[in-house]
């Protein structure tokens, strides 16, 4: 049983103070988002309405610790139909930002930059659909240098940055070019053997 008065009632204020989280309390749990959601077809545990409800009630650990807040793909299908104009992708971004700040880490791979080879061409910044990459000044191996930096709260692990990088300086943790090429070669060899 959930004891409501032991929940953290400041959590919703914290979410609403975060950019993207402003509209949280508008939600009246109509379920439109859940019924439109593409992710819930893959993951039966995923229910955006329920996560919003949990946040409103102040179930801080359950929201921030849940792998589900990293599942939203920001397709914004639900946003188009939401009668209260709530952009759930923005809200989830706010959840993730708070989660990262409080020491939680993303459950899956996010893009990472090889700062030594990055030439700061900015192509990844341009292609990223989630505005998760930016160019920053950094000290790399004792030199001041402009490099790309990934905001893990925003990164959705789509890999478009890795595919477009010309110096192969950005990739996904478990899906680096090398790993993918290896997989491909194995598959091709398997086909050759079969043929």
């Amino acid at each position: 049983m959930q004891r409501l008065n032991q929940c953290d009632s400041t959590f919703k204020d914290e979410v609403m103070a975060e950019p993207g989280g402003e509209n949280l309390i508008r939600c009246y749990s109509c379920g439109t988002c859940m019924a439109t959601c593409l992710i819930r077809r893959q993951d039966p545990d995923y229910n955006p309405r329920r996560i919003l409800r949990m946040a409103m009630l102040g179930l801080r650990e359950q929201v921030l610790g849940s792998h589900l807040i990293w599942r939203c793909s920001a397709c914004d299908e639900c946003y188009e139909h939401c009668p209260q104009g709530i952009r759930i992708s923005d809200l989830f971004k706010a959840f993730r930002t708070i989660a990262l700040r409080q020491g939680y880490s993303p459950p899956g791979p996010t893009a990472r930059v090889n700062e030594r080879t990055c030439v700061a061409c900015g192509l990844c910044v341009e292609v990223c659909p989630y505005d998760a990459v930016e160019l920053v000044q950094k000290r790399v191996l004792g030199h001041e240098k402009t490099v790309a930096q990934v905001n893990t709260a925003l990164c959705m692990s789509c890999g478009v940055c890795a595919a477009s990088c010309r110096s192969a300086s950005i990739d996904l943790l478990d899906y680096s070019d090398e790993t993918l090429l290896q997989h491909l070669q194995q598959q091709l060899q398997a086909i050759e053997v079969a043929v």
Binding site: C30, G31, T32, C33, A35, T36, R49, C78, H81, P83
Partner: peptide, 20 residues
């Protein structure tokens, strides 16, 4: 639950309502 989508079966012209 507020329906999020109504679709039609072109054969029967019946409607499918989706909601949570």
């Amino acid at each position: 639950g507020r329906p999020s989508l109504i679709t039609e079966d072109p054969e029967t012209r019946n409607l499918f309502i989706q909601a949570e």
